[in-house]
Design a protein around this nucleic acid. Structure first.
Lengths: 344, 344
DNA sequence: AATCATTTTCAAAGCGCTTTGGATGCCGGG
DNA sequence: CCCGGCATCCAAAGCGCTTTGAAAATGATT
């Protein structure tokens, strides 16, 4: 069923039917009702492509997912973020189109998207420091919002981010207050902007107490369980083992816990752990009392909100840029306790 | 830059330029080269919507993600599956469009997709037993492939699935051979077809050795870490605790391990664990020696292959239906060992 | 009754592409 | 010299929608 068929069926012109369905005022309410009823009855929906051609709007938003050949990982937060964003999209009549692309071709992918007019805007995931995508998107004039921020970019842009620095500063202080002096940092991949900010928060807290950050207990990698495990194991086996760890994700933290328990130590008593928690739906941090003491910030909420921001920007590209900084909440769980006496 | 502009720029008709770019034979090779060069230079890409309108093909494939209000979980395998499928799509010039929809509106979502002509086909995720989506998709005539299978459906359809029954039958036998007689099952949500098949494999293996399945050590829920933890904890605290567990996912298995260790027991010595492993990129099962003994089957590979199947079906809708059953490999890791003497 | 304003409807153009059904020019064979 | 055949190219229609500009119908006003 298409417009033409529907309109001849109703004995009306395509114009009138189109207007009736799109809520234009210049159509009799009685007629509108008739049209709406018939459309419902025949399950008529305008053809996306035709509508898009006519209006110049795709009513779709793009997400480019770079697939590195080196770093094979699919970000575990991806699913929850998408779920949140998708909710907003649905509510606003937008489709979501994903493009998986080898990271070396990422720039070309954005250009393609632009010239093929497949989407009205894009979400930039996982910004690196001095991320080149931002300049590119400005250049080709594709509306976008960044999930996170990119340090060292001259031009301004819209973003939504968790206050990573503050979160890690607070976690570090929390551990310092408990008497821990050697705190291992198990961070995300160097070069990722969020990892940089987290380290900055960690170092700032240490320095404020006169402790010099020790590179031998700071690691940076893709945040897998294995990485958390290995890092913690190595640090614990070293001469001056940390009495606490700061992990960048729950997945990492699970690995850290494994290393701790493998060594016959007890988390929360012998070794403290604080992690960042993205509130992934399949990886809840306990039910009543959190397992891990954690800085918590729902990535699904972030997706929801970021999608709203992007839609706002698409509707009003010359409107003000939007910046939103979410504070993570520090939730005390069972994984932290005072530093053991002998280590103090 | 659009076709019209490009063609006047070249002093050619739109027809010729279009044909040159699309590889039709009736155009001089010299001309074709000129056209290709100019297109490259001006970064010309045909407008997706216009092309779609003209050809009747969307060159896009849909994934409908139902968001339950009850079960809030985003399936953790989702990211990896999408990454695999997306790879195939990119290679074949397809876009991937996701629709997040409240599960109660799922049927309507498929009808919408169909009548709006947004995609050429869809992937059906997480089939339940007697899944109603299959009949629906047949009815509205939208090409599709199911990731998994649905028992109790009259009509045939294309699918790609892991042999869940065989996998769990083999795991169970493996544990039985090690002398375990009480094996707890920590399964996915009842009603999901894969969970049904896994249980069938488990029960068949037990019965073959004259052991009656005991409902008190069989659980069924969404496969979260918490669920694995709680289930294992409860079973371990009961009168006749299991000496081994069979878990339906790595995430669950992590919870099981936590429960075991919390009780002061050692996994692989006191309690054995076998899990199914979807080979998620951020949750590798160890590096050299697997942590968990596991039935392993890469969900990313599944995505890749399933996308190929769907594209085949789209190109040849009247071709034969395709069924592919992947066997999981049983990899022995550190989480299993002979049943403790006293329990034998 | 005539005029004007307002409401309601419509025909047709246009969005950017593909594709049909020629046109054009060139060549060799009769 | 003419004609058929082939290689190239083109004009125009059509995909299904929105939107412009105008016409028709209605109601209000004088």
């Amino acid at each position: 069923m298409n417009l033409k068929e529907l309109s001849t069926l109703l004995g009306l012109s395509q114009t009138t039917v189109s207007r009736a369905l799109n809520g234009y005022p210049e159509v009799n309410e009685e007629t509108r009702r008739r049209v709406a009823l018939a459309a419902e009855k025949h399950n008529y929906r305008p053809n996306t492509r035709a509508k898009g051609l006519a209006t110049g709007r795709a009513m779709a938003i793009g997400h480019v997912i770079p697939m590195s050949t080196k770093h094979e990982m699919v970000n575990p937060i991806f699913g929850d973020f998408i779920a949140g964003a998708g909710e907003t999209y649905s509510r606003n009549g937008y489709d979501m189109v994903l493009t998986v692309v080898e990271d070396v071709n990422e720039a070309q992918a954005y250009r393609n998207i632009r010239s093929r007019h497949t989407v009205d805007g894009v979400v930039v995931h996982g910004p690196k420091m001095k991320d080149s995508r931002i300049a590119l998107l400005h250049e080709i004039g594709l509306p976008f919002v960044v999930h996170g921020r990119a340090s060292g970019i001259a031009q301004d842009y819209s973003w939504l981010d968790v206050n990573n620095k503050s979160a890690f500063l607070r976690s570090t202080n929390f551990l310092l207050d408990l008497g821990h002096k050697r705190i291992g940092l198990i961070n995300g991949l160097e070069g990722m902007d969020f990892a940089y900010r987290r380290r900055a928060g960690y170092e700032e807290a240490l320095k404020a107490r006169g402790i010099a950050p020790d590179p031998s207990i700071m690691r940076s990698e893709e945040m897998t369980e294995i990485f958390g495990y290995r890092s913690a194991r190595e640090m614990l086996a070293a001469d001056e083992p940390p009495t606490a760890f700061l992990a960048s994700s729950m997945i990492c933290a699970l690995g850290v816990r494994r290393a701790i328990e493998e060594r016959g130590l007890r988390m929360g008593r012998d070794i403290s752990v604080v992690t960042h928690d993205d509130a992934l739906s399949y990886l809840q941090n306990g039910s009543d009392v959190p397992i891990f003491t954690a800085t918590r910030s729902s990535v699904r909420d972030a997706g929801r909100r970021l999608a709203e921001i992007l839609i706002e920007r698409i509707n009003n590209p010359d409107g003000p840029l939007i910046h939103e900084l979410l504070e993570a909440e520090l939730m005390v769980g069972q994984s932290t306790g005072p530093a053991p006496r002998e280590a103090q």
